[in-house]
Design a protein around this nucleic acid. Structure first.
Lengths: 242, 242
DNA sequence: GTCTATATGTGGATAGAC
DNA sequence: GTCTATCCACATATAGAC
């Protein structure tokens, strides 16, 4: 509340640097010394401002997720109000959920592709406190969107919808993180792929490039997700529908 | 070559334990002391048998990937021989690539779900040596399957096929790792999901349960992947086809 | 091959001066 | 709020006896 300007600057600078380094090296692979060194602040500053390394990671995410998940809820509210009681179309639900996220990649003030990559990677970190944290942060949004999808696909068993939501999250996380096997093998052949596949610390090489990158990723990913969501049901489900 | 029986046992025991612990806690989150403690071998045994922690991780994967990727190449060879020069169907290619993997989850002697989860998680680890290792291990298989998909989908731009292969790998990794946001939110509602979502160290709670788990995961995942692969192309691609 | 003991580095965190 | 100095737990790795 009564923070001075220098205080705010330090806090923000630490958050920015931590976001970038956690993205590039993972939580365990990033040390406090790496963070404070790159942010040009004292080693003790992190503990003073955030309390611990774990708390720092949480604050890095809270800064972005507050906006993201708030926006997701607003988008769904707007769609449902507009539909006036009728079920939404699956494509609308996906657009609100994934489109909102992908648009963060276009906006540097929201973290840009750096945050998107960080999010994609961190969702698969095994550390218990990270999983617990995300579960809490996402609970409300997932609940609302699950309901919307249940209504949008009334003939599909609910368990199947949840599974496919799961698959969609995976495709998106992985695509965003851009840290996979295809990188080396395909990177040399297809120039279009290169941009996404340089998860160095220098992730923001060109801001304009990041914008295009995010836009094209969204345009490629959405049809894929929709195709998967609406695919024919597995055989063992078609046989004994619930 | 001239290894004694006790030697082999120690090596294998270390590999088994390391596989389980790396799966549960990630590479950085697993210490040599955790591994040697759980395997009931001496702390120095890992360095004696494998040389370093990095080399241990590589050997954990080599043991499984040699089989997996060999099997994938054989499956593709068989399909192409049978097709006698004609392009394969997309579903055949996916079945050979993803089906072979998912069937490992049913077989405890191939690592079962423990290895599948480990693989899914490790593919997103940021450490450089891990990414380099996987790129090398997967190069041949990815190259062969890419070609097969190019032939199977002659009307789809190659860049788009590579992207969708990317998305499919993500959906699969994530689904297998079972470490995500949905876990807490959905786990309490849908009993069917619970089985997949207990990435503890005690991953092999029931072998029979693991078999069913792997089979049902495969049956759910394959239609999703095929639906995504064959989805309509993004607009900006339909407009200016290469 | 296995063990003990230890070298050597790095991690997160904090006490206390300014 | 910031900085120095330091604590202490724990990491990987190895030397050398058995």
């Amino acid at each position: 509340m009564s923070e001075t300007k220098a205080n705010l600057d330090t806090r923000e600078r630490i958050l920015d640097v931590a976001e970038r380094l956690f993205m590039a090296h993972g939580y365990e692979g990033t040390s406090m010394r790496m963070i404070t060194g790159a942010a040009e602040v004292n080693l003790a500053a992190v503990n003073y401002h955030f309390g611990s390394k774990e708390a720092l990671l949480r604050d890095v995410f809270r800064r972005r997720l507050a906006w993201l998940n708030g926006e997701r809820l607003r988008a769904l509210d707007a769609l449902e109000k507009q539909a006036d009681g009728a079920p939404l179309k699956p494509s609308q639900v996906l657009e609100a959920f994934f489109g909102t996220l992908l648009r963060m990649g276009e906006d540097e003030s929201l973290g840009g592709m750096t945050f998107l990559r960080l999010l994609g990677r961190t969702l698969t970190e095994p550390a218990e406190f990270i999983r617990t944290f995300f579960a809490g942060e996402y609970a409300e949004v997932i609940e609302r969107y699950k309901r919307a999808l249940f209504r949008a696909l009334p003939d599909v068993p609910r368990a199947e919808i949840v599974w496919r939501l799961h698959f969609m999250l995976g495709a998106m996380s992985y695509a965003i993180a851009g840290t996979d096997v295809l990188q080396v093998v395909t990177g040399c052949e297809l120039n279009e792929l290169k941009e996404l596949n340089e998860p160095d610390e220098s992730a923001g090489a060109g801001v304009a490039g990041n914008r295009d990158e995010a836009v094209r990723l969204a345009e490629r990913l959405m049809p894929f997700l929709l195709g998967g969501l609406r695919a024919p049901l597995p055989h063992f489900i078609q046989e004994n529908l619930q």
